[in-house]
Structure formats: structure tokens, C-alpha cells
């Protein structure tokens, strides 16, 4: 199952750091996100793009995870050569993450 079926997401940027929220459509499914969408999984997923660490923060009160991706924006929003300087589309990319659950 794709992460898109379980969660929605938004990307934010500060300098060369991106943050990506992963929010359960149904808060009851939050434990699935917490179990499968780990910092290591997200770092591996973005291996080609993110050069630094990935840190995960949990917000069970709203059924959400927050990932902070260091060295993720090609040197920073104000100097990157990337077409999407802010990395706005990274959250959409993550929606393709495969979660090992049956549909």
C-alpha cells in the first residue's frame, strides 16, 4: 500500500533544511505510520536528494509525524540550482512510499 492511502503531507523549508509532515487521514491509523515510516526509511527513500541526517518527531495528539531532513535543498533555498528551490514537491514524492500492508 502506498503511504498516500494512509496519510497526507506538506513540505516546509528553512535554508538547506526541509521538513515533511506525515499526517494520518484517520488518527486511528497513526500507530501504523509510527511503526513503518521511520527516520531510517525516509532517509533511504530520499538517498539521492538528502545528504544529511533525517530526524523524526512524533505528535500523537494530532496523529502526525514530522521529519526534518538536513542538507536536503541543494545548498539552500537561496542558492540551489534546483528547479524546485524550496523542495515543495518532496512531500508528494514521499506519498509514493510503499507501506508493507495489504490494500
Amino acid at each position: 500500500m502506498k503511504l498516500r492511502e494512509l496519510a497526507h503531507s506538506r513540505t516546509g523549508d528553512k535554508g538547506n533544511i526541509s521538513n515533511i509532515s506525515v499526517i494520518a487521514h484517520d488518527p486511528a491509523q497513526y500507530p501504523i505510520l509510527e511503526k513503518y515510516v521511520t527516520a531510517a526509511v525516509v532517509k533511504e527513500f530520499f538517498a539521492e536528494i538528502v545528504k544529511g541526517d533525517v530526524i523524526r518527531y512524533t505528535l500523537p495528539a494530532i496523529g502526525a509525524l514530522n521529519f526534518v531532513l538536513y542538507s536536503a535543498l541543494g545548498g539552500g533555498v537561496t542558492r540551489t540550482l534546483s528547479l524546485d528551490a524550496h523542495g515543495k514537491g518532496l512531500s508528494s514524492a514521499l506519498m509514493n512510499l510503499e507501506i508493507p500492508l495489504e490494500e
Binding site: H8, S9, R10, G12, D13, K14, I17, N19, S21, I23, Y57, L59, A61, I62, G63, A64, N66, V68
Partner: peptide, 28 residues
Amino acid sequence: KEQLLYEIHNPAAYITPDVVADFTGVQF
């Protein structure tokens, strides 16, 4: 929920000039 986490790093320590804010207990 999407906007609460927009451009936030550690949600328990969002540093501003006025306060170090903690968003982890926010309820909608």
C-alpha cells in the same frame, strides 16, 4: 494540521524572539 507543522523542526521547541513554543499538545 498541515499548517501547524509547516516549516517546523522540533515541534516541542519552536524558537521565536518572544518564547520557545511547544506545539506538541495542540488539539484541533
